[in-house]
């Protein structure tokens, strides 16, 4: 929605965190984590291009609002505790 010329800065200065972009909607495959198999190596967190994985006690908490489903975490996980599952067609 366009904002009035009176309500915008002189030039486009962006200061709103990109968390407004729900990039999780792009996802075709969803990462599903078996936390019981997790060995807390943190590689999934380290290699996530979108900083969409948070570590909770060393284990991944994937923010599906932003995860684009690239699958790097699943590919890198040495414990093979992450699998990619096709998103259900709605």
């Amino acid at each position: 929605m366009s904002r009035s010329y009176e309500d915008i800065p002189l030039t486009p200065i962006s200061d709103t965190p990109s968390t407004v972009n729900m990039t999780g909607l792009w996802r075709v495959f969803r990462p599903v984590v078996d936390l019981d198999k997790c060995r807390k190596c943190t590689l999934c967190w380290k290699f996530c291009p979108d900083a969409a994985i948070e570590l909770v006690d060393g284990k991944p908490n994937i923010d599906l609002r932003y995860c684009k489903g690239c699958g790097i975490c699943a590919n890198e996980c040495p414990a093979e505790c992450i699998i990619m599952v096709k998103e259900e067609a709605e």
Binding site: T23, K40, T42, P49
Partner: peptide, 27 residues
Amino acid sequence: MSRVTIPEVEHAYPGSTGCPGCGANLV
């Protein structure tokens, strides 16, 4: 105990509009 090998602090937000799996995001 987890084995974090790079600084945990993030200076990037999720929600960038780079492609899935983009290397440039990681750079």
